[in-house]
């Protein structure tokens, strides 16, 4: 039994590493500026990976080496402050190694650049819709009480900044290599706007506007999904995210409806 037990533990470690090494399930190829997020996550996974392997192999060794044998008696070792201090030191060090780059990356994640293009994301059961600021670069005011079938975003058409806002009911288009700041809202329950290739997500909460920013670094077609349980359509709440050259983006944008043209009180 002890030999079997330690072999199984070793096999579990080997199996786990093999599954990781197979590379079948791993990060999607990054398509945003957030290599710092990947970096912090990889350091963290590295540290815990080392700990996982070391501790389990040590466990496997212990049960093999100290299995009950007739002649031997267990040793009375109630504690050993020196070993404990060393281990606490190593642990604290490991935690600093993964936390420091993590907090650094986080502080960048929550500080959007001033020149970012603002796009509004509005979630509802069960789709994502988008609003662009239009030529004036400003999103018009919106309020949930103004939402109606003719005004699905609840924009305040009395606000001059709202007139030129552009609406997209299906796709999110973004120009490549330009910082984007999302303003995220929800009309009903909580959703979460997650684009795996960009590594970023944030809940869409009714009654408030949440934010995150990124720079798409690669043209292509990606997918935004919902990452917060929002009812029976949760697993089907997704939307294409298309990153393209600035020209193509502007071409597309020009074809989308504006608030002035489509929204009636």
């Amino acid at each position: 039994m002890p030999v079997f037990a330690s072999v199984v533990l070793v096999l579990i470690v080997v199996g786990a590493l093999a599954l990781v090494a197979s590379g079948i399930w791993w990060f999607t190829p990054l398509a945003s500026n957030w290599n710092e997020i990947d970096g912090a996550l990889l350091i963290t996974l590295g540290v815990i990976g080392i700990a996982f392997v070391t501790l389990n192999l040590f466990l496997a060794y212990l049960i093999l080496r100290y299995r009950a044998r007739e002649q031997e008696r267990a040793q009375f070792i109630p504690d050993n402050p020196k070993i404990e201090k060393i281990l606490i030191g190593i642990t604290a060090l490991g935690i600093i190694i993964l936390l420091a780059p993590g907090l650094f990356a986080y502080s960048r994640f929550i500080s959007p650049p001033r020149d970012a293009m603002i796009v509004e994301v509005v979630g509802e059961q069960w789709r994502w819709t988008y609003r662009y600021a239009g030529p004036d670069g400003k999103l018009g005011r919106a309020h949930p009480k103004l939402i109606s079938p003719k005004n699905p975003f609840g924009v305040d058409i009395a606000d001059p900044a709202a007139q030129d806002d552009i609406l997209s009911y299906t796709e999110l288009h973004l120009p490549v290599n330009r910082p984007v700041l999302l303003h995220i809202r929800s009309k009903d329950v909580i959703h979460s706007f997650f684009i795996p290739h960009f590594r970023a997500k944030m809940d869409a909460v009714p009654g408030m506007v949440t934010h995150y920013w990124f720079v798409p670094t690669r043209a292509g077609k990606f997918q935004a999904v919902c990452a917060e349980l929002c009812g029976i359509g949760h697993h089907r709440m997704h939307s294409p995210v298309i990153v393209e050259s600035l020209e193509k983006f502007q071409e597309w944008l020009a074809k989308q409806p504006t608030v002035a043209a489509t929204v009636k009180p």
Binding site: I63, Y66, Q75
Partner: peptide
């Protein structure tokens, strides 16, 4: 882990 160390482990 250190409790197991130098113990007499009953399986």
């Amino acid at each position: 882990l250190l409790t197991l160390w130098r113990g007499k482990i009953q399986f």
